[in-house]
Write a protein that binds this DNA or RNA. Sequence first.
DNA 1: CCACCGGGTTAGGCAGGACTAACTTTCGTC
DNA 2: GACGAAAGTTAGTCCTGCCTAACCCGGTGG
Lengths: 219, 219
Amino acid sequence: MATESVQDYLKAVYVLQSYGQEVTTSRIAARLGVAAPSVSAMVKKLVADGLARHAPYREVRLTEEGEAAALAVVRRHRLVESYLHDALGLRWDEIHDEAEILEHSVSERVVDAMDRALGHPSRDPHGDPIPPKRGRHREVPDEPLAGVPIGARVRVERVSDQDAAVLRHLARLRVVPGAEVTVADHDPFGGPLWVRVGSRRPALGAELVSAIFVSVLDR
Amino acid sequence: MATESVQDYLKAVYVLQSYGQEVTTSRIAARLGVAAPSVSAMVKKLVADGLARHAPYREVRLTEEGEAAALAVVRRHRLVESYLHDALGLRWDEIHDEAEILEHSVSERVVDAMDRALGHPSRDPHGDPIPPKRGRHREVPDEPLAGVPIGARVRVERVSDQDAAVLRHLARLRVVPGAEVTVADHDPFGGPLWVRVGSRRPALGAELVSAIFVSVLDR
DNA sequence: CCACCGGGTTAGGCAGGACTAACTTTCGTC
DNA sequence: GACGAAAGTTAGTCCTGCCTAACCCGGTGG
């Protein structure tokens, strides 16, 4: 099977492209915390192995095979996160980093056992959908909270798991997947977004807002 | 922390020395499936890092620090095995290979959660004792089945987890940790050892016998 | 006491994956 | 349409951990 590094790159490309972003060398580098030339070299390797397509100075795209491999990694990641949270009781801000490592070590046998133990969950604790073992995977239809007009009522669908401190803060504010939130106001010049969650009325800074993806219920 | 490779070598040295064997380059090499010069190089590194002591052409010994690191790996390995078996329902011949990989990936947090979930087990499914998180670790007092005199009644304490096929076979024969077995006879010239287990009277070939460690109840 | 054999070690290489420094392409701006 | 900054790539190193080939100890047998 692919090395851990290859799996990391495939997953990074997949996730970036699923956010609808142009997948560039520098974005991959930023996400993985490596230098840009490392990415150039690895992309060359992915292309040689039939996992990606790439014209120099252009964006990177996965082949069918590359996407399948990436989805397998994503499935392991999200199932492991779910298992650590639901079965082993880890906090939701702890599980991403653990899963980042375990996703490379758990065998299909173990992942399947976790999947069974959890009753085949369809979303992980951050709201990200878990790719099925077989069959087509669909990311959930959602949009950035930042783009929602004032006054709209939304449901939190997903929260980015990239930053543990952000997750801890959002959990305290009860802004978690499934929560219903009303956008009350948006201060100008990079000021906070005011929302209503139950009886609370927290202010969300730009960093928090950009981590939240919602579906609009009512505007 | 130490690399995976370093952990593998530490564990190999620890296990060999706990079997009371002289820990030589070639034995380490055989256990890890690497060439002898790779071991020479790594031993040099372990010595430089204060994890082992070694005079050229002599045996390898762990320092206090090396042994502590080895025990941490062994603890992870045996707890993961226990968890995979008892909580996730994997068969006892499957868990060793899985744990061999996962022992390098599970964090202390995850291991502690598994330990808690299992109620702090003291032995893994093969009968090997699980080193405590703190405090002195003792291997169980046992002896090779091969050395037991005919007529003795013994309890199976541990079964080597190195060979999955051996484990499958022993499980079928009900020769598992905790089982009480009477040594009935031993055919000469490498012939089988005949034992009684409950109402069965299986013959154990040399490869099976060498995997079994027992305590003598009565001779 | 010396030769030999097997195991241990040194030397030299290679692959994977990262880095920095230096060069090239692209693209927006004037 | 030329220029310069930002982004991407190439070139050259390094580190880890493995390998094979060749050399060297050290204990046993004659």
